[in-house]
């Protein structure tokens, strides 16, 4: 699993690479952590269940990212990492379940980053190429 930031003038664009869709989705925990608190260390004393679904793989990725930001806006939970099951295919599209581990934002230890307004659908993609899953997402800042 890996991710890298791609050039974007005003907002933030990330590319995630993994050998599985589950890996792409789990990488979101690390990405959201960086977007919220940069390189600050984040503990794992809080664990919360996560279940999301989408009509297709890009919408599923969007839903996981939105759920992580929602946990921050609602409970100030900064994720350390995300553990998910393999996606299962239902009649209305794929879904995943798992846990988010992290801790509440602490301004003494966490270096707050500029606010992410939203996870956008602009250039949102998840594709499988040569055994690799590659996803791109743009965040509005």
């Amino acid at each position: 699993m890996a991710y890298r930031w791609l050039p974007h003038t005003a907002d933030l664009k990330v590319e995630i690479t993994s050998d599985s869709l589950r890996g792409v989705l789990e990488e979101t925990g690390t990405i959201v952590r960086e977007l919220l608190v940069g390189s600050s260390e984040v503990g794992t004393r809080v664990s919360t269940a996560l279940t999301v679904s989408g009509v297709d793989a890009p919408e599923l990725l969007l839903a996981v990212l939105r759920a992580l930001f929602d946990l921050y806006h609602r409970d100030r939970l900064v994720p350390s990492h995300v553990e998910l099951s393999d996606p299962t295919q239902g009649p209305e599209g794929p879904s995943v379940a798992g846990r988010v581990r992290g801790e509440p934002f602490d301004p003494r230890r966490h270096d707050a980053q500029p606010e992410i307004k939203a996870v956008t659908r602009h250039a949102l993609s998840v594709r499988q190429t040569g055994g690799q899953w590659i996803a791109t997402v743009v965040f509005d800042v």
Binding site: T9, A10, T120, R121, D140
Partner: peptide, 9 residues
Amino acid sequence: IHWGYGFPI
């Protein structure tokens, strides 16, 4: 103008 999402900024 600069790169936005959907519509340009």
